[in-house]
Design a protein around this nucleic acid. Structure first.
Length: 438
RNA sequence: GCCGCUGUAGCUUAACCCGGUAAAGCGGCUGGCUGUUAACCAGUCGAGUGGAGGUUCAAAUCCUCCCAGCGGCGCCA
Protein backbone atom coordinates (compact mmCIF):
# COMPACT_ATOMS: atom_id res chain seq x y z
CA UNK A 1 0.00 0.00 0.00
CA UNK A 2 1.44 3.34 -1.00
CA UNK A 3 1.54 6.09 1.53
CA UNK A 4 3.08 8.48 -0.94
CA UNK A 5 0.68 11.24 -1.80
CA UNK A 6 1.93 12.82 -4.98
CA UNK A 7 0.04 16.06 -4.66
CA UNK A 8 1.68 19.40 -5.24
CA UNK A 9 4.82 17.84 -6.70
CA UNK A 10 5.73 15.98 -3.51
CA UNK A 11 8.05 13.04 -4.01
CA UNK A 12 8.21 11.67 -0.47
CA UNK A 13 6.50 11.90 2.86
CA UNK A 14 8.84 12.70 5.73
CA UNK A 15 8.22 9.31 7.29
CA UNK A 16 9.42 7.62 4.11
CA UNK A 17 12.64 9.63 4.12
CA UNK A 18 13.34 8.81 7.74
CA UNK A 19 12.66 5.13 7.19
CA UNK A 20 14.82 4.93 4.06
CA UNK A 21 17.78 6.85 5.59
CA UNK A 22 19.44 7.33 2.22
CA UNK A 23 22.05 9.90 1.29
CA UNK A 24 21.75 12.31 -1.65
CA UNK A 25 18.22 11.47 -2.72
CA UNK A 26 16.65 14.34 -4.70
CA UNK A 27 13.35 15.19 -3.00
CA UNK A 28 10.44 17.58 -2.91
CA UNK A 29 8.45 17.71 0.31
CA UNK A 30 5.43 19.68 1.45
CA UNK A 31 4.73 20.66 5.02
CA UNK A 32 4.79 23.33 7.67
CA UNK A 33 7.59 25.13 9.47
CA UNK A 34 7.51 23.75 12.97
CA UNK A 35 10.59 25.63 14.12
CA UNK A 36 13.18 27.96 12.68
CA UNK A 37 16.63 28.98 13.80
CA UNK A 38 18.64 31.56 11.96
CA UNK A 39 22.41 31.42 12.43
CA UNK A 40 24.00 34.12 10.32
CA UNK A 41 24.60 32.53 6.95
CA UNK A 42 22.39 29.50 7.49
CA UNK A 43 18.87 28.67 8.49
CA UNK A 44 17.50 25.49 10.02
CA UNK A 45 13.86 24.67 9.53
CA UNK A 46 12.11 21.76 11.18
CA UNK A 47 9.48 20.75 8.63
CA UNK A 48 6.39 18.85 9.69
CA UNK A 49 4.01 16.96 7.46
CA UNK A 50 1.24 14.54 8.41
CA UNK A 51 3.76 11.76 8.80
CA UNK A 52 6.66 13.24 10.76
CA UNK A 53 9.38 15.85 11.24
CA UNK A 54 12.64 16.50 9.43
CA UNK A 55 15.29 19.20 9.55
CA UNK A 56 16.01 21.27 6.49
CA UNK A 57 19.22 23.22 6.26
CA UNK A 58 19.36 26.29 4.05
CA UNK A 59 22.86 27.61 3.41
CA UNK A 60 23.33 31.03 1.89
CA UNK A 61 25.60 29.72 -0.86
CA UNK A 62 23.15 26.94 -1.88
CA UNK A 63 20.09 29.00 -2.71
CA UNK A 64 19.31 32.19 -4.66
CA UNK A 65 19.66 35.31 -2.43
CA UNK A 66 15.93 36.16 -2.66
CA UNK A 67 15.03 32.65 -1.49
CA UNK A 68 17.37 32.98 1.50
CA UNK A 69 15.73 36.26 2.47
CA UNK A 70 12.21 34.88 2.10
CA UNK A 71 13.08 31.95 4.36
CA UNK A 72 14.78 34.31 6.82
CA UNK A 73 11.53 36.26 7.10
CA UNK A 74 9.32 33.17 7.19
CA UNK A 75 7.16 32.43 10.21
CA UNK A 76 6.41 29.34 12.23
CA UNK A 77 3.55 27.24 10.86
CA UNK A 78 3.79 28.67 7.35
CA UNK A 79 3.13 26.03 4.68
CA UNK A 80 6.19 25.37 2.56
CA UNK A 81 7.53 23.37 -0.34
CA UNK A 82 11.15 22.28 -0.03
CA UNK A 83 13.22 21.08 -2.98
CA UNK A 84 16.62 19.64 -2.25
CA UNK A 85 18.38 16.43 -1.43
CA UNK A 86 18.83 14.27 1.61
CA UNK A 87 22.02 14.19 3.61
CA UNK A 88 23.04 11.77 6.30
CA UNK A 89 24.44 13.95 9.07
CA UNK A 90 24.99 13.07 12.70
CA UNK A 91 24.31 16.66 13.73
CA UNK A 92 20.70 16.44 12.48
CA UNK A 93 17.85 15.00 14.54
CA UNK A 94 17.40 11.31 13.51
CA UNK A 95 20.72 11.59 11.62
CA UNK A 96 19.09 12.77 8.42
CA UNK A 97 18.39 16.21 7.04
CA UNK A 98 17.52 17.95 3.81
CA UNK A 99 19.93 20.34 2.14
CA UNK A 100 17.59 22.78 0.41
CA UNK A 101 18.10 24.04 -3.11
CA UNK A 102 14.87 25.95 -3.13
CA UNK A 103 12.16 26.79 -0.63
CA UNK A 104 8.77 28.17 -1.52
CA UNK A 105 6.45 29.68 1.07
CA UNK A 106 3.02 28.43 0.03
CA UNK A 107 1.00 30.05 2.80
CA UNK A 108 2.62 32.46 5.23
CA UNK A 109 1.38 32.28 8.80
CA UNK A 110 0.84 35.17 11.19
CA UNK A 111 2.81 35.20 14.42
CA UNK A 112 2.19 31.83 16.04
CA UNK A 113 0.56 32.30 19.45
CA UNK A 114 1.82 29.06 20.99
CA UNK A 115 5.11 29.74 22.73
CA UNK A 116 7.19 27.73 25.12
CA UNK A 117 5.31 29.11 28.10
CA UNK A 118 1.90 28.53 26.51
CA UNK A 119 2.51 24.80 26.65
CA UNK A 120 2.07 25.05 30.40
CA UNK A 121 -1.42 26.41 30.07
CA UNK A 122 -4.04 23.75 29.20
CA UNK A 123 -6.79 26.30 29.40
CA UNK A 124 -5.17 28.50 26.76
CA UNK A 125 -4.31 25.56 24.53
CA UNK A 126 -7.93 24.38 24.54
CA UNK A 127 -9.11 27.92 23.80
CA UNK A 128 -7.04 27.72 20.62
CA UNK A 129 -7.48 24.01 20.05
CA UNK A 130 -7.86 24.63 16.28
CA UNK A 131 -4.17 25.60 16.35
CA UNK A 132 -2.79 23.59 19.25
CA UNK A 133 -3.75 20.24 17.67
CA UNK A 134 -0.65 20.72 15.49
CA UNK A 135 1.52 20.08 18.51
CA UNK A 136 3.57 16.89 18.68
CA UNK A 137 1.80 15.50 21.70
CA UNK A 138 -1.67 16.67 20.74
CA UNK A 139 -1.47 15.14 17.28
CA UNK A 140 0.07 11.91 18.56
CA UNK A 141 -2.96 11.24 20.75
CA UNK A 142 -5.26 11.86 17.79
CA UNK A 143 -3.20 9.46 15.67
CA UNK A 144 -3.48 6.80 18.37
CA UNK A 145 -7.24 7.30 18.50
CA UNK A 146 -7.32 6.72 14.76
CA UNK A 147 -5.41 3.48 15.25
CA UNK A 148 -7.83 2.34 17.98
CA UNK A 149 -10.69 2.68 15.53
CA UNK A 150 -8.72 1.05 12.73
CA UNK A 151 -7.95 -1.96 14.94
CA UNK A 152 -11.55 -2.33 16.07
CA UNK A 153 -12.82 -2.08 12.51
CA UNK A 154 -10.37 -4.72 11.41
CA UNK A 155 -11.35 -7.01 14.28
CA UNK A 156 -15.09 -6.82 13.69
CA UNK A 157 -14.91 -7.30 9.93
CA UNK A 158 -12.52 -10.23 10.29
CA UNK A 159 -14.98 -11.88 12.63
CA UNK A 160 -18.07 -11.56 10.49
CA UNK A 161 -19.82 -8.61 12.14
CA UNK A 162 -21.94 -6.19 10.14
CA UNK A 163 -21.40 -2.48 10.63
CA UNK A 164 -24.65 -0.66 11.24
CA UNK A 165 -25.52 2.97 11.88
CA UNK A 166 -28.25 3.94 14.29
CA UNK A 167 -29.98 7.33 14.38
CA UNK A 168 -28.47 10.13 16.43
CA UNK A 169 -31.79 11.88 16.86
CA UNK A 170 -33.99 9.71 19.02
CA UNK A 171 -37.15 9.73 21.05
CA UNK A 172 -36.26 7.19 23.69
CA UNK A 173 -33.66 7.30 26.41
CA UNK A 174 -31.58 4.31 27.25
CA UNK A 175 -29.39 5.53 30.07
CA UNK A 176 -31.82 7.60 32.09
CA UNK A 177 -33.75 10.72 31.17
CA UNK A 178 -31.83 13.32 33.14
CA UNK A 179 -28.77 13.22 30.97
CA UNK A 180 -30.37 13.78 27.57
CA UNK A 181 -29.70 16.73 25.32
CA UNK A 182 -33.06 17.91 24.08
CA UNK A 183 -33.57 19.05 20.50
CA UNK A 184 -36.59 20.53 18.82
CA UNK A 185 -37.70 18.16 16.08
CA UNK A 186 -40.25 20.16 14.08
CA UNK A 187 -42.15 20.94 17.25
CA UNK A 188 -41.72 17.50 18.79
CA UNK A 189 -39.36 16.77 21.64
CA UNK A 190 -36.41 14.68 20.55
CA UNK A 191 -33.02 13.90 22.01
CA UNK A 192 -29.45 13.29 20.95
CA UNK A 193 -28.68 9.63 21.36
CA UNK A 194 -26.87 8.23 24.38
CA UNK A 195 -26.24 4.84 22.83
CA UNK A 196 -27.09 2.79 19.76
CA UNK A 197 -27.83 -0.28 21.82
CA UNK A 198 -31.60 -0.46 21.48
CA UNK A 199 -31.28 -0.19 17.70
CA UNK A 200 -28.59 -2.84 17.67
CA UNK A 201 -30.96 -5.19 19.45
CA UNK A 202 -33.38 -4.75 16.58
CA UNK A 203 -30.60 -5.21 14.04
CA UNK A 204 -29.36 -8.56 15.38
CA UNK A 205 -32.69 -10.11 14.41
CA UNK A 206 -31.74 -9.42 10.82
CA UNK A 207 -27.94 -9.59 10.94
CA UNK A 208 -27.17 -11.67 14.04
CA UNK A 209 -23.91 -9.99 14.98
CA UNK A 210 -23.50 -6.26 14.53
CA UNK A 211 -21.23 -3.45 15.59
CA UNK A 212 -21.34 0.31 15.36
CA UNK A 213 -19.18 3.32 16.00
CA UNK A 214 -21.07 6.51 16.63
CA UNK A 215 -21.08 9.72 18.63
CA UNK A 216 -22.99 9.59 21.89
CA UNK A 217 -24.24 12.53 23.87
CA UNK A 218 -24.65 12.75 27.62
CA UNK A 219 -25.80 15.93 29.30
CA UNK A 220 -23.93 15.06 32.47
CA UNK A 221 -22.29 18.06 34.08
CA UNK A 222 -19.40 15.82 34.92
CA UNK A 223 -16.24 17.80 35.46
CA UNK A 224 -13.90 14.85 35.60
CA UNK A 225 -10.86 13.65 33.69
CA UNK A 226 -12.87 10.85 32.07
CA UNK A 227 -16.06 12.48 30.85
CA UNK A 228 -16.96 14.23 27.64
CA UNK A 229 -20.48 15.36 26.81
CA UNK A 230 -19.95 14.12 23.26
CA UNK A 231 -17.88 10.98 22.83
CA UNK A 232 -17.59 8.07 20.42
CA UNK A 233 -18.68 4.62 21.36
CA UNK A 234 -17.97 1.31 19.73
CA UNK A 235 -20.90 -0.96 20.46
CA UNK A 236 -21.63 -4.51 19.54
CA UNK A 237 -24.57 -6.83 19.99
CA UNK A 238 -24.71 -10.57 19.35
CA UNK A 239 -27.77 -12.83 19.10
CA UNK A 240 -27.73 -15.99 21.23
CA UNK A 241 -24.67 -14.74 23.12
CA UNK A 242 -24.46 -15.03 26.90
CA UNK A 243 -22.80 -12.61 29.25
CA UNK A 244 -19.73 -14.87 29.33
CA UNK A 245 -19.60 -14.88 25.52
CA UNK A 246 -19.67 -11.12 25.40
CA UNK A 247 -16.88 -10.77 27.96
CA UNK A 248 -14.75 -13.01 25.76
CA UNK A 249 -15.54 -10.79 22.78
CA UNK A 250 -14.57 -7.66 24.75
CA UNK A 251 -11.37 -9.31 25.83
CA UNK A 252 -10.42 -10.20 22.26
CA UNK A 253 -11.31 -6.76 20.96
CA UNK A 254 -9.40 -4.86 23.64
CA UNK A 255 -6.47 -7.16 23.10
CA UNK A 256 -6.55 -6.62 19.33
CA UNK A 257 -6.75 -2.85 19.75
CA UNK A 258 -3.97 -2.56 22.30
CA UNK A 259 -1.60 -4.86 20.41
CA UNK A 260 -2.07 -2.98 17.17
CA UNK A 261 -1.51 0.39 18.81
CA UNK A 262 1.59 -0.86 20.60
CA UNK A 263 3.01 -2.22 17.36
CA UNK A 264 2.07 0.54 14.96
CA UNK A 265 2.12 3.68 17.09
CA UNK A 266 5.44 3.23 18.85
CA UNK A 267 6.60 6.65 17.62
CA UNK A 268 3.51 8.38 18.98
CA UNK A 269 3.74 6.54 22.30
CA UNK A 270 7.36 7.60 22.59
CA UNK A 271 6.49 11.25 21.96
CA UNK A 272 3.94 10.96 24.76
CA UNK A 273 6.48 9.33 27.05
CA UNK A 274 4.15 6.37 27.41
CA UNK A 275 5.46 2.91 28.14
CA UNK A 276 2.56 0.70 27.23
CA UNK A 277 2.48 -3.09 27.32
CA UNK A 278 -0.64 -4.55 25.71
CA UNK A 279 -2.43 -6.96 28.05
CA UNK A 280 -2.58 -10.67 27.19
CA UNK A 281 -5.93 -12.41 27.64
CA UNK A 282 -7.47 -13.78 29.71
CA UNK A 283 -8.26 -10.67 31.73
CA UNK A 284 -9.24 -10.95 35.38
CA UNK A 285 -12.84 -11.43 36.46
CA UNK A 286 -14.22 -10.58 39.86
CA UNK A 287 -17.78 -10.11 41.06
CA UNK A 288 -19.24 -6.87 42.35
CA UNK A 289 -19.32 -8.46 45.80
CA UNK A 290 -15.64 -9.36 45.64
CA UNK A 291 -14.78 -5.89 44.37
CA UNK A 292 -16.80 -4.34 47.17
CA UNK A 293 -15.01 -6.45 49.80
CA UNK A 294 -11.65 -5.43 48.44
CA UNK A 295 -12.59 -1.75 48.33
CA UNK A 296 -14.07 -1.82 51.85
CA UNK A 297 -10.88 -3.43 53.14
CA UNK A 298 -9.04 -0.39 51.82
CA UNK A 299 -11.26 1.88 53.83
CA UNK A 300 -13.74 3.09 51.20
CA UNK A 301 -17.30 2.21 52.15
CA UNK A 302 -20.51 2.14 50.15
CA UNK A 303 -23.81 0.32 50.44
CA UNK A 304 -24.50 -2.89 48.56
CA UNK A 305 -26.57 -1.90 45.55
CA UNK A 306 -24.87 1.42 44.95
CA UNK A 307 -22.58 1.94 42.00
CA UNK A 308 -18.90 1.69 42.81
CA UNK A 309 -17.60 5.16 43.72
CA UNK A 310 -14.67 6.62 41.78
CA UNK A 311 -12.27 6.10 44.66
CA UNK A 312 -13.24 2.43 44.79
CA UNK A 313 -12.87 2.02 41.05
CA UNK A 314 -9.37 3.46 41.35
CA UNK A 315 -8.49 0.91 44.00
CA UNK A 316 -9.57 -1.93 41.69
CA UNK A 317 -7.85 -0.33 38.72
CA UNK A 318 -4.55 -0.08 40.58
CA UNK A 319 -4.84 -3.52 42.14
CA UNK A 320 -4.54 -5.50 38.90
CA UNK A 321 -1.82 -5.47 36.25
CA UNK A 322 -4.30 -6.25 33.46
CA UNK A 323 -7.85 -5.16 32.71
CA UNK A 324 -10.37 -6.64 35.10
CA UNK A 325 -14.06 -7.35 34.60
CA UNK A 326 -16.29 -6.49 37.52
CA UNK A 327 -19.37 -8.64 36.93
CA UNK A 328 -22.76 -9.23 38.49
CA UNK A 329 -23.65 -5.65 39.32
CA UNK A 330 -26.77 -5.07 41.41
CA UNK A 331 -29.80 -4.19 39.30
CA UNK A 332 -30.20 -0.99 41.33
CA UNK A 333 -26.92 0.29 39.85
CA UNK A 334 -27.82 -0.59 36.25
CA UNK A 335 -30.06 0.50 33.41
CA UNK A 336 -33.50 -1.04 32.95
CA UNK A 337 -32.62 -3.39 30.09
CA UNK A 338 -30.22 -5.68 31.98
CA UNK A 339 -30.98 -9.37 32.46
CA UNK A 340 -30.82 -10.63 36.04
CA UNK A 341 -29.42 -13.92 37.25
CA UNK A 342 -31.83 -16.84 37.19
CA UNK A 343 -31.38 -17.49 40.92
CA UNK A 344 -31.18 -13.86 42.05
CA UNK A 345 -33.26 -11.09 40.55
CA UNK A 346 -31.29 -8.36 42.35
CA UNK A 347 -28.09 -9.16 40.46
CA UNK A 348 -27.55 -8.54 36.77
CA UNK A 349 -25.58 -10.47 34.18
CA UNK A 350 -23.49 -7.46 33.40
CA UNK A 351 -19.95 -6.24 33.79
CA UNK A 352 -17.67 -3.24 33.55
CA UNK A 353 -14.19 -3.64 32.18
CA UNK A 354 -11.70 -1.67 34.26
CA UNK A 355 -8.41 -0.67 32.69
CA UNK A 356 -5.33 -0.83 34.93
CA UNK A 357 -3.03 1.94 36.23
CA UNK A 358 -5.93 3.95 37.59
CA UNK A 359 -7.51 4.62 34.19
CA UNK A 360 -10.72 2.88 35.17
CA UNK A 361 -13.85 1.92 33.32
CA UNK A 362 -13.58 1.50 29.55
CA UNK A 363 -16.52 -0.74 28.66
CA UNK A 364 -19.87 -1.89 29.97
CA UNK A 365 -21.56 -5.01 28.73
CA UNK A 366 -24.00 -7.73 29.57
CA UNK A 367 -26.96 -9.82 28.69
CA UNK A 368 -30.16 -7.99 27.80
CA UNK A 369 -33.62 -8.72 28.98
CA UNK A 370 -35.47 -10.69 26.30
CA UNK A 371 -38.77 -11.25 28.14
CA UNK A 372 -41.65 -8.94 27.18
CA UNK A 373 -43.50 -8.82 30.51
CA UNK A 374 -40.42 -8.25 32.62
CA UNK A 375 -39.12 -5.51 30.35
CA UNK A 376 -42.51 -3.82 30.26
CA UNK A 377 -42.52 -3.80 34.05
CA UNK A 378 -39.09 -2.21 34.17
CA UNK A 379 -40.00 0.49 31.66
CA UNK A 380 -43.06 1.43 33.70
CA UNK A 381 -41.00 1.46 36.90
CA UNK A 382 -38.55 3.87 35.28
CA UNK A 383 -41.39 6.26 34.52
CA UNK A 384 -40.44 6.26 30.84
CA UNK A 385 -43.08 7.08 28.23
CA UNK A 386 -44.16 3.62 27.12
CA UNK A 387 -45.10 4.76 23.59
CA UNK A 388 -41.55 5.58 22.61
CA UNK A 389 -40.38 2.19 23.85
CA UNK A 390 -43.15 0.18 22.20
CA UNK A 391 -41.00 -0.73 19.21
CA UNK A 392 -38.26 -1.93 21.56
CA UNK A 393 -40.74 -4.03 23.53
CA UNK A 394 -42.14 -5.34 20.28
CA UNK A 395 -38.86 -7.07 19.51
CA UNK A 396 -39.74 -9.37 22.41
CA UNK A 397 -42.90 -10.43 20.60
CA UNK A 398 -41.14 -11.47 17.40
CA UNK A 399 -38.49 -14.04 18.14
CA UNK A 400 -35.85 -12.21 20.16
CA UNK A 401 -33.49 -14.82 21.60
CA UNK A 402 -31.18 -14.30 24.58
CA UNK A 403 -28.55 -11.84 23.47
CA UNK A 404 -25.72 -9.77 24.83
CA UNK A 405 -23.69 -6.74 23.90
CA UNK A 406 -21.35 -4.06 25.14
CA UNK A 407 -20.19 -0.51 24.60
CA UNK A 408 -16.58 0.65 24.56
CA UNK A 409 -15.63 4.28 25.00
CA UNK A 410 -13.23 5.13 22.18
CA UNK A 411 -11.77 8.13 23.99
CA UNK A 412 -11.46 6.23 27.26
CA UNK A 413 -9.48 3.46 25.58
CA UNK A 414 -7.37 6.06 23.81
CA UNK A 415 -6.74 7.81 27.11
CA UNK A 416 -5.57 4.60 28.73
CA UNK A 417 -3.34 3.49 25.86
CA UNK A 418 -1.85 6.98 25.36
CA UNK A 419 -1.49 7.48 29.07
CA UNK A 420 -2.90 11.01 29.00
CA UNK A 421 -4.38 12.37 32.18
CA UNK A 422 -7.47 14.05 30.82
CA UNK A 423 -9.87 12.57 28.30
CA UNK A 424 -10.23 15.92 26.48
CA UNK A 425 -6.77 15.32 25.00
CA UNK A 426 -8.17 12.34 23.09
CA UNK A 427 -10.76 14.42 21.24
CA UNK A 428 -9.92 16.72 18.36
CA UNK A 429 -12.43 19.30 19.57
CA UNK A 430 -13.56 18.12 22.99
CA UNK A 431 -17.01 18.91 24.28
CA UNK A 432 -17.15 19.32 28.03
CA UNK A 433 -19.66 21.17 30.20
CA UNK A 434 -17.47 24.29 29.92
CA UNK A 435 -16.31 23.99 26.31
CA UNK A 436 -18.40 24.37 23.18
CA UNK A 437 -15.84 26.35 21.18
CA UNK A 438 -13.81 25.89 19.07
C1' G B 1 -26.13 19.63 41.33
C1' C B 2 -22.20 19.93 45.36
C1' C B 3 -17.13 21.15 47.46
C1' G B 4 -12.50 23.64 46.69
C1' C B 5 -9.05 26.79 43.93
C1' U B 6 -7.62 30.49 40.36
C1' G B 7 -8.20 35.01 37.21
C1' U B 8 -2.02 40.48 36.63
C1' A B 9 1.24 42.25 29.01
C1' G B 10 -0.10 37.40 23.34
C1' C B 11 1.81 33.20 27.04
C1' U B 12 3.98 31.77 32.06
C1' U B 13 4.70 34.01 36.51
C1' A B 14 6.23 38.20 40.56
C1' A B 15 4.10 42.04 43.63
C1' C B 16 -1.48 40.39 47.21
C1' C B 17 -0.75 37.91 53.59
C1' C B 18 1.35 43.35 56.30
C1' G B 19 -2.91 48.98 50.60
C1' G B 20 1.52 53.71 48.47
C1' U B 21 0.28 53.74 42.19
C1' A B 22 2.91 46.98 38.34
C1' A B 23 8.42 43.48 37.78
C1' A B 24 10.56 39.59 34.94
C1' G B 25 11.12 35.36 31.48
C1' C B 26 9.09 33.62 26.88
C1' G B 27 6.96 35.63 22.31
C1' G B 28 7.13 40.21 18.96
C1' C B 29 10.26 44.05 16.70
C1' U B 30 15.62 45.89 15.40
C1' G B 31 20.61 44.29 14.93
C1' G B 32 24.62 40.33 15.24
C1' C B 33 26.22 35.28 14.51
C1' U B 34 27.70 29.29 8.84
C1' G B 35 25.60 23.53 12.87
C1' U B 36 20.92 25.00 15.49
C1' U B 37 18.24 20.91 18.50
C1' A B 38 13.49 24.75 24.18
C1' A B 39 19.87 28.04 19.96
C1' C B 40 22.66 32.22 21.70
C1' C B 41 24.10 37.71 22.39
C1' A B 42 22.65 43.10 22.50
C1' G B 43 18.75 46.64 22.26
C1' U B 44 13.50 47.69 22.19
C1' C B 45 7.98 47.67 22.28
C1' G B 46 4.05 45.80 25.14
C1' A B 47 -0.53 45.43 30.71
C1' G B 48 -2.85 49.16 34.80
C1' U B 49 -4.29 43.80 37.09
C1' G B 50 -11.77 39.14 34.61
C1' G B 51 -16.39 42.64 35.39
C1' A B 52 -19.47 45.82 38.60
C1' G B 53 -19.81 48.15 43.14
C1' G B 54 -17.92 49.40 48.15
C1' U B 55 -14.12 50.92 52.08
C1' U B 56 -9.86 54.42 51.90
C1' C B 57 -6.16 60.38 51.02
C1' A B 58 -4.66 56.00 48.13
C1' A B 59 -6.83 49.30 45.86
C1' A B 60 -3.64 44.22 41.75
C1' U B 61 -3.62 44.09 47.17
C1' C B 62 -9.30 44.67 51.88
C1' C B 63 -15.02 43.65 51.41
C1' U B 64 -19.65 42.27 48.43
C1' C B 65 -21.86 40.42 44.12
C1' C B 66 -21.33 38.61 39.15
C1' C B 67 -18.62 36.10 35.14
C1' A B 68 -15.04 32.67 33.33
C1' G B 69 -11.73 28.68 33.83
C1' C B 70 -9.35 24.73 36.62
C1' G B 71 -9.30 20.47 40.23
C1' G B 72 -12.40 16.94 42.58
C1' C B 73 -17.22 14.51 43.87
C1' G B 74 -21.94 12.48 42.27
C1' C B 75 -23.16 10.03 37.38
C1' C B 76 -21.17 7.29 33.53
C1' A B 77 -18.24 4.92 27.98
Amino acid sequence: MSTRYKVGGRTHTIRELLEEQKDRVPITILGWIQNKSFIGGMIFLIIRDGSGYIQTTIKKENVPPEVFNVVKDSTKESAVKVIGETKLDKRAPYGLEIIAKNVEIIAKADVWPITRSAIRSPSFLYDIRHLSIRGKKASSVIKIRSKVIEAATEYFFKNGFYLISAPSIVQSACEGGATLFEVDYFGQKAYLTQSAQLYEEAAILALERVWTIEPCFRAEKSKTAKHLTEFWMIESEVAFATHEDIMRLEEELVSAITHKVAEECSGELKILGRKFTPPEPPFYKITYDEARDLIMKRGVTFEWGEDIPTEGEKIISNEFDKPVFIKEFPLSARSFYHMTKLDNDKVTLSSDLIAPEGFGEITTGGQRLSDYKELEKRILQQDFPKESFQWYLDLRRYGLPPHSGFGLGVERVTRWVSGVKHIRATSLFPRTPTRLNP
